[in-house]
Design a protein around this nucleic acid. Sequence first.
RNA 1: GGGAGAGUACCAGAGCGGUCAAAUGGGGCAGACUGUAAAUCUGUUGGCGAAGCCUUCGGAGGUUCGAAUCCUUCCUCUCCCA
Length: 428
Amino acid sequence: MNFVDELRWRGMIHDMTPGTEEQLNKEMTSGYVGIDPTADSLHIGHLVSVMILNHFQRCGHRPIVILGGATGMIGDPSGKSQERNLLTEETLRHNQQAIQKQLKKFLDFDSTEKNRALLLNNYDWLSKFSFLDFIRDIGKHLTVNYMMAKDSVKKRIAGEGDGMSFTEFSYQLAQGYDFFHLHEHFQCKLQMGGSDQWGNITTGIELIRRKTGQEAFALTCPLITKADGGKFGKTESGNVWLDPEKTSPYAFYQFWLNCSDEDSKKYIRIFSLLSKAKIETLEKEHDNAPHLRILQKKLAKELTIRTHSLEDYEAAVNASEILFGKGTAQQLSKLSEKMFFSVFEGVPQIKIEKTLLEKPIAVEDFLAEMTEIFPSKSEVRRMLKDNAISVNKSKIDDTYTFSHESLINQKYILIQKGKKNYYIVIVV
RNA sequence: GGGAGAGUACCAGAGCGGUCAAAUGGGGCAGACUGUAAAUCUGUUGGCGAAGCCUUCGGAGGUUCGAAUCCUUCCUCUCCCA
């Protein structure tokens, strides 16, 4: 299998340096991408790079992941984020372990194959550099003129912003040095990344060329977009993480299931390993019956199983059916407690005293004051008028009162605001 | 330092003495339709209530029967001149 061809039909190539393809066809090549270890989990924005490495490895090359423990402290100037927090070494190691565990689902680190993946942390070499050594051995090889010609720098200097600190300006050198280091110690000849990394990558190539006279290569992929112009990988509740503690498998599954038709065609090429023929067949089926959401379901399935597990996937499908299917109060009460809470995992839970339900309580009082699910009684009244509130999957009106009889299995009440917003009240 | 102007609900932006809880647009939320979609249409978008009442228009005072609207002062922002 040819790596470049594979990425090409998947729409994952934005740009390459000349000769990249020849190099990859010539021999097993080591290539790397960098990841910022700012959290102890990857999110789906990272997944593109990871998938590139996955293809890279399946095509017989050796993938290397660099955690930017050191560079992450500096901050890539492309984002105008505030001062980065310095990660302690302890946190760094913790994050590294957690991330590696997740990467193992996508890359083979442990086999005896000679192209098994490698995970490194640039903190291990950059932290040992003295300032003097760095500017003498590295800074000397590149002119400021060269560095200033980069788009990411030009924009900041020409722009109206607050200018650019020397620290940020140096970022490309640090990243460039990484490439050089890997080239020297791991025969790494290729760096990959998002198209926004092009400038940083070519700095590394230039550094390698000047210091060693040898050639190195770059390959970038387009930044992932959504058809509606929104930012990929974000939901109302923030990033979509791979860590099930941060984003439940159910929410993860739902994220992919809710992709638009247009996006899912793009995403299934990027995030699944399905063959070209298979994807094209699925697309045809999808277009014939778009409401079945064949692509979204397939995509969600592939990724949920890979990232989490088959059991998690099945539970997510099950939960989705209860939540969005024609679930009824009867069905709800049939669920075991364990199943109930796994279906409604991640749903806000409100605990109340059992004694409060001894006498009937008016809807507004219960929903606005006792449980604070709604911000005010007026809000509750409005929602009731709109026919938007359900208790235990049944619509209610303003004559409804809460009491012991509202409880499912003596224990909880399921409140719905509209179709998608669930709340669970638990008596204690 | 001198001059001009502006600050209104989540945002933008009308209102310039009573009919203003405050136009309109966007956003949000909900309903219908649907594919847990998009588009569209509808409702709703300060609080408590049955009518009605209470608190809101940068802050604090004042004029008036009555102020988001007039006056004083303070704060903040924008523009122009040096």
